[in-house]
Simulated scan of single mutants.
Amino acid sequence: MRDAIESIVSALAHNGLVLRGGFIFADDEEAPSGPTGLSAKSALLVGQAGAAPWPHFLRWRERQPQTMANPLDTWAREVIGAVAKDFGARAVSPSDRPYLPFQQWAMRAEKLKPSPLGILMHPRYGLWHAYRGALLFEDGIAFPEIQEAIHLCDACVEKPCLKSCPVDAYSLDGFAYQACLAHVRGANGAPCRTGGCLDRNACPYGTAYRYPPEVQAFHMASFAGL
Rank of each mutant, 00 (worst) to 15 (best):
A49G: 12
H122A: 07
P204I: 09
S33L: 10
F23K: 07
R185V: 01
M68I: 10
A208G: 07
E110W: 02
W60C: 07
A187H: 04
M107P: 04
Q104L: 13
P116H: 06
A49Y: 01
D199S: 15
A182S: 13
P191H: 06
D96E: 10
C165L: 04
R124V: 14
G16F: 07
G126M: 06
A176G: 00
V46M: 10
I146N: 05
R108D: 09
D96W: 08
A217W: 01
G16N: 08
Y125E: 12
F223C: 01
E148C: 03
Y211G: 04
A91Q: 12
W128P: 05
F57S: 05
G133N: 08
A202S: 15
V83I: 15
A134T: 03
L120C: 08
P94V: 11
R90M: 10
G174F: 07
N188T: 05
A149Q: 15
C180S: 06
Y177F: 15
F25H: 06
A182F: 02
F87W: 10
P101T: 09
N201S: 12
M220S: 02
G133R: 03
F102I: 01
C203R: 03
E145R: 12
S115A: 13
C197I: 03
D173N: 11
T74D: 13
F23W: 10
S164C: 11
S39A: 14
A224V: 07
F102P: 06
P53T: 06
L44T: 01
N15R: 11
S171C: 07
A190K: 12
G133H: 03
L19C: 14
C203V: 08
M220N: 02
R185W: 00
L17N: 07
S164E: 14
V9R: 15
G81Q: 10
V46W: 06
Y125T: 08
Q147K: 13
V184F: 04
G140K: 14
S95A: 14
H219A: 08
A187C: 01
F218P: 01
C203I: 04
F25N: 09
V92C: 13
L19E: 11
Q64H: 06
L152R: 10
F23D: 10
A4L: 15
A190F: 02
L17E: 01
E138G: 05
H14V: 11
F223L: 11
Q66K: 13
P213H: 06
P191N: 05
F102E: 05
A69Y: 00
A49V: 04
V18L: 11
C197V: 02
W75M: 05
A89Q: 05
A155D: 13
A202N: 07
R63F: 02
L127C: 08
R210G: 00
V46N: 09
G16H: 10
P35A: 14
L181W: 00
L198I: 01
P32Q: 09
F102H: 04
H219F: 14
S42V: 08
C203F: 04
D199G: 14
R210T: 08
N70K: 07
G126E: 03
F25V: 09
C156M: 13
P204L: 09
N188K: 12
L72S: 09
A13D: 15
G196T: 06
R200Q: 12
F57T: 03
L44F: 08
V184T: 12
F175D: 00
L100G: 05
Y205F: 15
